[in-house]
Simulated assay, not measured.
Amino acid sequence: MASVRDLLALGADLPTESPARDAEVLLCHCLQRDRTWLYTWPEKPVDAANEQRFRALLARRRQGEPVAHLTGQRDFWTLSLAVTPDTLIPRPDTETLVSWALELPLQEQARVLDLGTGSGAIALALASERAGWQVTATDASAAALAVAQRNIAHCCPGRVRTLQGSWFAPLAGERFDLIVSNPPYIEAADAHLASGDVRFEPRSALVAGASGLDDLQAIISGAPAHLAPGAYLLLEHGYRQGEAVRNLLTQAGFEAVATRRDLGGNERVSGGRCGAD
């Protein structure tokens, strides 16, 4: 019977950026144990059923399937979220947006909107940190919204309102103190679409026209009609799009336009404040 150490060694040659970590996560998932347990009990024998399950997951990972899809979950902020092929996989760089939003001088019962919520990661991170905020999450995809609703029920039941529709379509007449979004921003011809985890994520949540700016521009142009005076708009974007997004925000009349860098030092989130009436 194979031991924990034996099975971890099977993942050493995974053709991924972090083979050892991938193997750890998959074995933890199979055994319903944490990483500390794996290294505390490396000689523990693993029963045949779990060994077979682990080997099957390793084989799928070798074919490129994302770890988050294999386990059905991904940690984001302080939350463990359900993830499916119907949504983007939440990434650590998006926490840059969450951190910035939590620093803003908003009222205790601020109205907050997350456009294109996907798994609900941003909306739920904010709701989990600010009990008084009235958070709304929208998505054009019914399948993605179903994943978000599942995560809301698990993480913050009754705390986040969900609406289906493209960008501001389901929000006629509504205004918010903060709008956040991680919209599609990859160029249609970007070679990265053919490699890594993005091959398994919904293209509609990734690609935004030839320049990658189509959805960012749509949100920026539509946001003023849905922002209260002095409210904020924060947008995640590609690492080479900071200047373009700042220009779009300035042209749309936003003030105090700025950009924050992600964990890798790349420009990742830009935003500004809506002018007072």
Rank of each mutant, 00 (worst) to 15 (best):
A23P: 10
V67K: 13
G253T: 00
A121F: 11
G264A: 15
C30V: 13
V207Y: 06
G238M: 13
D215V: 12
V67S: 10
G242V: 03
P105K: 12
P105A: 11
V160N: 01
T40C: 11
A2F: 14
A123E: 11
D190R: 11
A189I: 02
E103W: 00
D214F: 05
V269D: 03
A256V: 02
L235F: 04
E51G: 15
T162D: 12
A144D: 09
T259K: 01
S80M: 11
A20E: 14
D114E: 03
V160Q: 03
G230E: 12
L145H: 01
S18F: 03
R35C: 07
A68P: 08
G212P: 13
R260G: 05
L113E: 03
R91G: 02
L27G: 14
P224C: 12
R150F: 00
L145K: 04
E95C: 06
E17C: 00
C155S: 14
T117Q: 14
L113P: 08
D277I: 03
A127I: 04
E95N: 07
I122E: 09
A9T: 12
E65Q: 13
D114I: 09
N247H: 10
L14M: 10
I179N: 05
L27D: 03
C30L: 07
G230H: 07
W100S: 15
S181I: 05
G212Y: 14
A9Y: 01
C274N: 08
N151Y: 05
A121S: 13
G272K: 02
E255W: 06
C274E: 15
P202D: 12
R35H: 08
A59F: 02
Q217T: 08
P229A: 12
R35Y: 10
S99R: 13
P157Y: 10
G238C: 15
R61V: 05
L58G: 11
V135M: 00
A144W: 09
E267R: 05
C156A: 15
I220F: 02
L263D: 04
E103M: 05
H192Y: 10
T71V: 15
L115R: 13
H29D: 14
A48P: 06
V83P: 10
D93V: 13
D139A: 07
L79D: 03
P224H: 11
Q73I: 00
A9W: 01
H69W: 06
Q251M: 05
V180T: 00
W37M: 10
F200I: 07
S166D: 14
E174H: 09
Q63T: 06
G271L: 09
V180I: 14
Q134Y: 02
S211Y: 11
F200A: 03
D93T: 06
G120W: 00
C274L: 07
A244C: 07
P202M: 12
A228F: 02
A123T: 08
Y39H: 15
I122K: 06
P183D: 03
D197T: 07
A59M: 03
L124S: 07
E243Y: 04
R62Q: 10
E243K: 08
Q217Y: 01
A188F: 01
L227K: 13
L234I: 04
D262F: 14
P184K: 08
L249K: 03
A110F: 04
T162A: 13
L38S: 12
A127T: 01
I89Y: 05
T162S: 02
R5V: 06
A188S: 15
L178F: 00
C156K: 06
T138L: 02
E129T: 04
E255M: 13
R33F: 00
N182Q: 06
P90Q: 09
A194W: 02
A59L: 11
